[in-house]
Design a binder for these strands. Sequence first.
DNA 1: GTCTATATTCAGATAGAC
DNA 2: GTCTATCTGAATATAGAC
Lengths: 211, 211
Amino acid sequence: MTSEQSKSDISRARILDAAAKTFRQKGYAATTLIEIAKAAGMQAGSLYYHFGSKDELIEEVLDIGMRRVHEAVEESQERLPADSSYRDRIRVAVEAHLTTLLKHDDYTSANIRIFGQVPEEVRQHHIRQRDAYAELWRRILTKAQKSGALRSDVDLGLVRMLLMGALNWSVEWYQPGRTSIQTIADHMCLMLFSGIGIEEPIRSGENETVA
Amino acid sequence: MTSEQSKSDISRARILDAAAKTFRQKGYAATTLIEIAKAAGMQAGSLYYHFGSKDELIEEVLDIGMRRVHEAVEESQERLPADSSYRDRIRVAVEAHLTTLLKHDDYTSANIRIFGQVPEEVRQHHIRQRDAYAELWRRILTKAQKSGALRSDVDLGLVRMLLMGALNWSVEWYQPGRTSIQTIADHMCLMLFSGIGIEEPIRSGENETVA
DNA sequence: GTCTATATTCAGATAGAC
DNA sequence: GTCTATCTGAATATAGAC
């Protein structure tokens, strides 16, 4: 039980990597074990030495993906100075979530993209883990609100859903090199804390022309 | 060519309705023609009288879905008084998008959920239509920014993506009866225009206790 | 227009050789 | 541990009867 990696461990990891990548790209049902095996450099039948079924494989991919965001966000909080502002706490959480999602993690983005496609039974097995992650955000936002850093008249559940949506949707459009992850996080935090609106001058009904 | 509906038209519509509903629920690959046929009250083979293939069917579902949001948002703008504020213009657009998505439209929500799963060829056929819808939002936001209603130092492309993400993700969590669509739209607009942050008092480093 | 029957294709899974 | 070969089931699509 040291950090030695048996041949089995190595193959297993290669399969998981290939699976996460393929599931993320093609979705659950459209991904075949043949494809995964090929990407992992072996034959389809060989997968069954490591995993009992396609669903067992997808479950582990989902599990790893969720664990990684969860840990990343949790660590972002622990790394902060104890006297950090609540805005900073939320800001680093947003950055951690986005970075995990977009930077190098096929597992996390696979989780987000295909969770809605997997068989009901697989989904059931992950509800607990999803809830735990939701709970982490709930705590962060609730503390911020109680402390007076967030408006007290908003439904934090709704805010959380809208925030997660904005962040998670990035897996559908983000392309490395076009915008930095930091810029995305900055825009998200600006919207969340201050909004991007400006008071409009009162107008008298005419269609004004703007230079 | 009046509004008469032939038997064929009626069956076709029933098939499309059943397809939109099933695709939305189960995703693209996991939905079988057998299921769709059953939901439409016929045998799988009969579908081929109306559609040449599964992909032809999905293309029409995607097409209808996108057309409906597009029209809904466009009409929301046309219905507004000419002297409406830019905030109001954005607000009704948000409401129209969300309402179409969540109220009665399996087509639109199917479009959002499965677009990422369909074969590349099908996706290609819809890029133009998707671009047209993006362009509609781009115009709305750009006019608002130019008029001074939105901060000039933000990347509107990013804002649009984050906004669409927050709205579209609602298909994953929205449940009728729990929160009203109007409340969701209100929260979204509040975040977008004003944010939900409150200036935090300057603190001196200690962990303060809050009553 | 819709049915029944079926051809075809292909994926998930198993068995035994190496 | 991985391979090859294969079973089994299921889904798209076609053909011809009604």
